[in-house]
């Protein structure tokens, strides 16, 4: 199977546009990169693109109705919207501490969702 895709490398601010050729699940050619990091990036981004998901979770009795949270590590890009729905189900109770685990092992990714600030009681 042959696949040709365009991936913008974000390893550094230059943002090279990479033309990537994939044959039988193997990267055969990367063009447009100005440094070797482009090839590594293309590999990771083609086979397993991951992102940190920053969002908010509801809080009861806090000085604000929401606390910011994030996945402690990047999770597969395809799971971002599913993870949003999981986080939407949560309601925490104030006070919240930075680093508190909001969801353990979200969607079996092995990654926790954690709070990213302290939130005091009202």
């Amino acid at each position: 199977m042959e696949d040709k895709v365009m991936i913008t490398c974000v390893s550094c601010p230059m943002g090279c546009d990479l033309n990537v050729e994939v044959i039988d699940e193997e990267i055969k050619k990367v063009e447009g990169n100005r440094c070797p990091r482009g090839v590594e990036y293309a590999k990771a981004e083609y086979f397993n693109p991951t992102r940190v998901l920053p969002t908010t979770a509801k809080v009861k009795g806090g000085i604000l109705p929401l606390v910011p949270v994030k996945t402690a590590k990047p999770i597969p890009k395809g799971l971002l919207e599913k993870a949003m729905r999981e986080i939407a189900k949560v309601e925490l109770e104030a006070p919240v501490k930075l680093g508190d685990i909001v969801i353990k092992n979200v969607l079996d990714t092995g990654v926790d969702v954690v709070a990213t600030r302290d939130l005091a009681k009202k």
Binding site: T8, V10, P13, M14, G15, R51, K77, L80
Partner: peptide, 10 residues
């Protein structure tokens, strides 16, 4: 660039 990729292209 990183934001164009991760906020729009994604």
């Amino acid at each position: 660039t990183r934001n164009i990729v991760q906020c729009l292209d994604d």
